[in-house]
Amino acid sequence: MEPESRANGTAITEFILLGLVETPGLRPVIFVLFFFAYLVTVGGNISILAAILVESKLHTPMYFFLGNLSALDVGCITVTVPSMLSRLLSHKCTVSYGACLTQLFFFHQLAGVDCFLLTAMAYDRFLAICQPLTYSTRMSQMVQRILVVVSWACAFTNALTHTVAISTLTFCGPNMINHFYCDLPQLFQLSCSSTQLNELLLFGLGILMAGVPVILIVTSYIHVAVAVLQIRSPEGRKKAVSTCGSHLTVVGIFYGTGVFSYMRLGSVEASDKDKGIGILNTVISPMLNPLIYSLRNPDVQGALRWVLTGKRRLA
């Protein structure tokens, strides 16, 4: 899809991504830091995925969703960071119009699936803790697969809608994006045509993609909290709080940064805060997720030890 030309200006065919820093001397430092973060993130999430596959104790719905989440984290950071690293190496800051929209589509596709998977994980915890007698039937393998497929379908619709909508805008200059990847708020600021409809679309779909899942997650955990308080066994209560606490931490980071990034309609100028939130979204959150889910989980720790060292923990 190519931008249309205007009578009073020439349509641009590429954008200039300013990146994280404008000082040339700091670019090697940024490259090393983000290359290391990328390796850690990919390695950590693939290790979690491998641990889930090899350890039979982890063949449960909760870890099925966690494995999908780990794969999404690898995809999310791969969509943004490698292209940024290549620009740092080549000293070429330009990105074509088509490549920019492609990056935007895949980023929103993967982030959208994240929204629904985190909701599915909250529903899984609700069933496991509040309705344990019917858990195996209500969260069967078929239900798990349906939840994942529906998550991908809804996220695809959202990402495609935003990509098509942004392609209808006219870009005739300037073409400098004060960020390290292409995203909706920054592109809105560069459009020569009205973005009011796009912003309303972002707000409306944001309610569906984030607002509804947050309401469902909060509702699930209200029921979970009531059920946990009724657990008499300290060990059982501790286990429930541990698994739910990890999930809530990830939810807080993911939705907190997402709301800050996309719900600030009417913002005129990009700022360094946007870059910081972008780093949290695309780098820090995917890098921390394996640590958050394994920190207080002995089953995951044992499986990771087996994957990384070949030694199984004795029961």
Rank of each mutant, 00 (worst) to 15 (best):
M1D: 11
M1F: 10
E2F: 09
R6L: 15
R6Q: 11
R6H: 10
N8M: 02
E14H: 07
F15D: 00
F15S: 00
G19H: 01
L20E: 05
L20R: 06
E22I: 02
T23Q: 09
L26N: 07
R27N: 11
R27G: 02
P28Y: 11
V29C: 07
F34S: 02
F35S: 15
F35R: 03
L39E: 09
T41M: 04
T41R: 12
V42M: 03
S47Y: 03
I48Q: 01
I48R: 06
A50R: 05
Y63W: 14
F64D: 04
L66Q: 13
L66N: 06
G75E: 07
C76H: 05
V81K: 08
M84S: 01
L85M: 09
S86I: 09
S90V: 10
K92V: 15
S96F: 01
G98Q: 12
C100H: 00
C100F: 07
T102F: 08
T102Q: 14
Q103C: 07
L104N: 11
L104W: 00
F107M: 04
Q109W: 14
Q109E: 13
Q109I: 12
Q109P: 04
Q109S: 10
G112D: 01
V113S: 00
V113D: 00
A120C: 13
L127T: 04
C130M: 10
Q131D: 15
T134H: 12
S136N: 14
Q141G: 14
Q141I: 03
V143E: 05
V148K: 07
V149T: 13
A153C: 13
T157L: 15
T157W: 09
A159I: 11
T161V: 12
T163Q: 12
T168N: 08
L169T: 11
F171Q: 03
F171T: 03
P174Q: 10
I177Y: 00
D183R: 06
L184M: 11
Q186K: 08
Q186V: 03
N198L: 02
F203R: 07
G204V: 02
L205T: 05
L205Q: 04
I207D: 06
G211W: 02
G211N: 02
G211Q: 04
V224L: 05
A227E: 08
V228D: 02
I231A: 05
R232G: 04
R232V: 05
R232S: 14
E235A: 10
G236V: 13
R237K: 15
K238N: 13
K238V: 11
K239P: 00
A240M: 09
V241S: 00
T243C: 01
C244E: 03
L248I: 14
L248R: 07
V250K: 05
V250S: 08
G252T: 15
Y255F: 15
F260N: 01
M263W: 07
R264W: 14
L265H: 02
E269A: 14
K275V: 12
I277W: 01
L280Y: 12
L280G: 09
T282D: 04
M287C: 13
Y293T: 10
L295P: 06
Q301T: 15
R305E: 03
R305K: 15
W306A: 12
G310D: 08
K311N: 06
L314N: 10
L314M: 14
A315P: 05
